[in-house]
Design a protein around this nucleic acid. Structure first.
Lengths: 186, 186
DNA sequence: ATCATGACTGACCGATCGGCCAGTTTTCAA
DNA sequence: TTGAAAACTGGCCGATCGGTCAGTCATGAT
């Protein structure tokens, strides 16, 4: 009955965050499937049982890793919903690049999950939002433009993979040029 | 000491081919890591021990699956070696699309291996040739064009993934448009 | 008919996986 | 100070992995 109930127990949240932090790095470096709970626990400085004390299972850890990116994508989709076709496309170009660059780590993780992504309800919303965004990016119902938008996304996501050495700005500049060439929006 | 030593024993080659055939389908559908030797054996109608009788290990099965595509890529790199810069680029555009479309199955498989591809000597040559090809595709030493070429490859390979329903010609046409827009070669 | 060779297999191995649980340590309000 | 809840852990479980091996079965030249 304290006034500060909103302050989460420091210990719990600190361990949780560290697990997610280390899991992100390991997933990005070696892929989701190749990373064991023991790997995550060791990196986070706790036992495997502790990981499973904070998360219901390995997929739950994945969901926590993906959550910030998923939230940003969901917000972007919501923001684009009320815009005109052209404005939505412009917003999608700008923001999609930003999101892919900022959350480039999750892009690596998602690639590793793609073959079995249909059976992972934890990431279904993110995938669904991503397809929505693809539609906005195309800017038209023309099948060719729709396909080119998907092409652009694949190139963009691929470009952000293993790009630890590149600076955010370099990456952003490159993606901007590529997207505008592909979508013919100079 | 027969005259027809070139004729491989029918039984051996038949089983071997079936294993590779089924392994390709399984790798493409579920990824390399998620496919077990037992899965391959069951699909091929033999025992797991038989798979390991024909191949030294799981990586050897992967190498056999990738081999036809690797050979085509190697031949393309060799062919482009003696051409002028512009001719090599044009050849790379045309042939890269063809290879990606025809061997679209191996593209799926490669994506699943990317995080640990450095430790797989079985596919090192294919990866090396792919990077060579990327240079030809760029058509210039300009870092921007080099990056755009990589962007194009990522988009192209991504486009060929899970494209079982699309016809080869549709896929080729789309990739041609995308590559020429990206590389500014209308 | 014989028999060496090639093709194949069932049973098993050690390792590792994700997950579970009983029990210990830490924390903190009363 | 105390005791109950929270945080945490070692040890174990069943399943599955890639891989090995001794031995069976088929084939085909002699």
């Amino acid at each position: 009955m304290m006034a500060d109930m909103a302050v989460t127990t420091p210990a719990r949240e600190r361990t949780r965050r560290e697990i997610v932090r280390q899991a992100m790095d390991l997933f990005q470096a070696g892929g989701y499937n190749a990373t064991s709970l023991q790997d995550i626990a060791t990196a986070a400085g706790c036992s495997k049982a502790t990981v499973l004390y904070h998360f219901s299972g390995k997929p739950a850890v994945l969901a926590a890793v993906l959550e910030p990116a998923a939230a940003d994508v969901a917000a972007l989709v919501k923001a684009a919903a009320g815009l005109s076709r052209a404005d939505a496309q412009e917003l999608a170009i700008q923001s999609f690049i930003d999101l892919a660059v900022v959350h480039r780590g999750v892009v690596d993780v998602l690639q590793d999950i793609l073959p079995v992504i249909e059976q992972m309800p934890e990431v279904a919303q993110l995938v669904s939002d991503g397809m929505q965004l693809s539609g906005y990016l195309a800017g038209s119902d023309d099948p060719l433009e729709q396909d080119l938008a998907k092409f652009a996304i694949n190139g963009l996501l691929g470009e952000c993979r293993h790009s630890g050495e590149r600076t955010d700005d370099d990456l952003r500049r490159l993606c901007d040029i590529a997207l505008r060439r592909l979508l013919r929006r100079a």
